[in-house]
């Protein structure tokens, strides 16, 4: 049970959150202009790194805000949380 620091509510149990997959995958500006392959890439393809990963979480059982986190997928350590729209912080 991770303890996830909601940028608003502070640390809460993982069970209060929904996972939203890879962060910074924007809805395409003009989907109609994309090739089938490009669209399929948006729909179905995500990174799956071992190590630092920027991902989306929503504090569904709390403030219902979406936010981003940089988590180390190998250790589960959350190195940073930041709000939607903010750039991914650089982790030393």
């Amino acid at each position: 049970m991770l303890l996830i620091p909601c940028p608003w509510c502070g640390p809460r149990d993982e069970a209060e959150f929904h996972y939203g997959g890879q962060a910074h995958v924007a809805y395409p500006e003009d989907p109609a202009a994309l090739s089938d392959e490009e669209w399929a890439r948006y729909l179905f393809f995500r990174d799956n790194p071992k190590g630092l990963f920027a991902e989306r979480w929503s504090h569904t059982a709390g403030c219902r805000r979406w936010f981003n986190a940089v988590r180390d997928t190998a250790t589960n350590e959350i190195h940073a949380v930041y709000r939607v729209g903010e750039p991914r912080p650089v982790i030393a």
Binding site: P31, D36, W39, A40, L43
Partner: peptide, 8 residues
């Protein structure tokens, strides 16, 4: 969903 209706 609209773009997906044009997928093969």
């Amino acid at each position: 969903g609209k773009r997906s209706f044009a997928r093969a």
